[in-house]
Design a protein around this nucleic acid. Sequence first.
DNA 1: GGTATTCCGTGATAATTGTTACATAGCCAC
DNA 2: GTGGCTATGTAACAATTATCACGGAATACC
Lengths: 216, 216
Amino acid sequence: MKLDLNFLHNKFGNIFEVGLLKEIIEFGTYLEVEEGFVMMRPGGFIRSVPIILNGSVKIVRSDAEGREALLYYLGEKDSCAMSLTCCLNSRQSEITATADSPTQLIQVPVQKIEEWMTKYSSWKEYVFMTYQKRFDDLLAAIDQIAFFKLDERLIALLKKKSAQCGCMVFNVTHEELGNELATSREVISRLLKQLERLGRVKLSRNKIELLDIALK
Amino acid sequence: MKLDLNFLHNKFGNIFEVGLLKEIIEFGTYLEVEEGFVMMRPGGFIRSVPIILNGSVKIVRSDAEGREALLYYLGEKDSCAMSLTCCLNSRQSEITATADSPTQLIQVPVQKIEEWMTKYSSWKEYVFMTYQKRFDDLLAAIDQIAFFKLDERLIALLKKKSAQCGCMVFNVTHEELGNELATSREVISRLLKQLERLGRVKLSRNKIELLDIALK
DNA sequence: GGTATTCCGTGATAATTGTTACATAGCCAC
DNA sequence: GTGGCTATGTAACAATTATCACGGAATACC
């Protein structure tokens, strides 16, 4: 697909001014990645800031031993605070970003980030909003990890996944859930089975269906 | 104390340009708060952004049941991402800020935050740096909570406190440590006692002395 | 000095989470 | 359909953390 002004205007018309949209078309790079594609790794150098058009991107923190903790998801119109930081300071990434579904995005090259901030107030606001949203997301992640027990965190995660795909059935393995909650597959299996016995989910291989979870 | 240009120039000369320092003197408010003073509460409205001159401020996240989790400390020259967000968006605070030692600071009124960002590039950079630093701080907090066991987190917290006061002995109760790690006083007492038996700390009422902790 | 208050130590026990080990089930390729 | 791979179920046990209950120690206040 080629970036075109009408398309961008529909999506970003209320955020970005037209001049900026034109520059985005001129200097941005359109990119389409498939589910599972790892867009960014700890230690990776980052030369562009992504703007998500469609799909969703999972942002995860990993420790030295390969354990993980889910931080948040990026969705339509979102951007990434880490890549902003990295671009503005020539730093390396400290997180992992993985496409959680087929994802379309625009990459804004590092040189334009600062330039546009002085040139377009809408861009400046977008950058600030990005920092603020991700800050909020991190606070929410800390709430989950610090204040809730695993069963509640699991339910919250299932809800979040359901919200991401906009449906009540989605594909996921217990292993993946375990990673995202920084625990083991067995623990997740146990908790899920418990939820199934309570009639709150229906389990199959690679798939979970939410029954009365999203409502609560 | 009155704000004076020499003083500010010594402290911030390599960060802020002189014109900005003059405006800070003109429009900022000097404030001195004693240890334990609660500078900000969840739900509180925020009409200014602080710049810390001296001392340290503890930033804590609390949940509905009054449990807490330490996020990070602010020290000299630092500022607060939450108050920036709140000022720029008329939002309410979602964290608690408490003076952890006698603290001197400047309050920058909300109107000037945006104005200075277009006027002084050094201010713009300071604001961005603040977001970035707090973002990093939150990531570090998540690492601690998600990947480490309580005994390690306790040691890390003791180190942090020691670094804050710049000494090996400091005043703190087990209760306070428990709050900051979102656990109970008893658990902390037990872990501390264990550390004392290992010869790594020396305990007294209201006081902890680090022996071979800071070195490791 | 006596008393109240706050802080600390610790046993007992429960709840939660982590680990090990192995069995079984679903699915794909041939 | 058979073999191989991945995913799930689950028991048994270990480790960690939480809670309850109480006694005693240090300090403050009168």
